[in-house]
Amino acid sequence: MDEDVKMATLVDPINAYSFLYPVELPGKKFTFKWVESRKPERYSSAAPLSPDARQRIVSERVDMIHNIVISVSIGPPNSRFPPSKDKSKWDPKDVADWILAEKSSLKVTTGQRMTESSVLDAHSSDVDGEPYWYYEYLVRKSPTQSAPEPNLFRHNVACTAERDGYLYSLNASTLSKQWESMGPSLQKTVASFHLLPPTENYVPPYKDPWRFW
């Protein structure tokens, strides 16, 4: 893993989480060009990303020049998940499959549809006594004018944690052909994802769940 990367911290007090994101690779004289496409906002006012309005992106930053996206989404488990109320027994692959199943009906930022995904790895780790689930997967995207190749894949790494009956997921992705150079930085981002102790600014997802303002 490339240790030579400068990171910055994002703290979202509304949803009580934080993570690091890469800003520069000094050794390669490379600078990320981030745009905050969705500023952190409460779950109830975040734009619904599926017809049932369950999964919602509460923050997102995009480097359009280098085709990198980092987003945080929140949503409740559906009726088929989880199989056990004891989250320490949840299988990491099941968590990954559930999150991806929820996303499969979503339109992604570019207006394309996620057409196919395959999980490469899934594991869990204990963070401050709470289970965090980490997974890596590929998504095949529909060809576009700017990327006409029929087998265009996005390489994704993600982390999910549970609080108050809701799943908080950070997802970082780039094109597969850029993974070798960008992947280590995105893996650091995912590894840094952390739910924070709520402050007075915290708005739980279940508060005013159908309020869109």
Rank of each mutant, 00 (worst) to 15 (best):
S37A: 12
R38M: 13
K39H: 09
E41G: 09
Y43W: 07
S44T: 03
S44G: 01
S45Y: 09
A46G: 04
A46V: 01
A47C: 12
A47Q: 14
P48R: 01
L49W: 08
L49I: 09
S50L: 10
A53C: 10
A53V: 06
A53H: 14
R56W: 03
E60Q: 08
D63E: 05
N67V: 12
N67A: 13
I68Q: 04
I68R: 01
V69F: 03
I70S: 03
I70Q: 01
S71Y: 05
G75M: 05
P76E: 15
P77Y: 08
P77E: 14
S79N: 12
R80P: 06
R80S: 14
F81I: 00
P82M: 07
P83W: 11
K85Y: 13
D86A: 04
K87G: 09
K93F: 07
K93V: 10
K93I: 08
D94W: 04
D94R: 03
V95I: 06
V95S: 02
A96L: 00
D97L: 14
W98C: 08
I99W: 12
I99P: 05
E102H: 08
K103H: 10
S104N: 11
S105K: 12
S105Y: 12
S105E: 14
S105D: 14
T109L: 11
T110R: 02
G111Y: 08
M114I: 13
T115D: 15
E116S: 09
E116Q: 11
E116P: 03
S117C: 10
S117I: 03
S117E: 07
S117Y: 06
L120G: 12
A122F: 03
H123W: 09
S124M: 00
S124N: 07
S125E: 15
D126Y: 10
D126G: 09
D126A: 11
D128H: 10
Y134W: 05
Y134K: 06
Y134E: 11
Y135D: 09
E136V: 04
E136Y: 04
K141G: 15
S142V: 14
P143A: 05
P143E: 12
T144G: 07
T144W: 08
Q145F: 15
A147T: 15
A147S: 15
A147K: 15
P148L: 10
P148Q: 12
P148I: 11
P148F: 13
E149Y: 15
P150K: 13
F153K: 11
R154Q: 14
H155M: 09
H155D: 14
H155A: 09
N156S: 11
N156M: 04
V157N: 02
V157H: 00
V157E: 06
C159F: 01
T160W: 01
A161F: 00
R163K: 03
D164S: 08
D164Y: 00
Y166T: 01
L167D: 13
S169P: 03
N171W: 01
T174D: 06
L175P: 12
Q178Y: 09
Q178K: 10
W179V: 04
E180I: 05
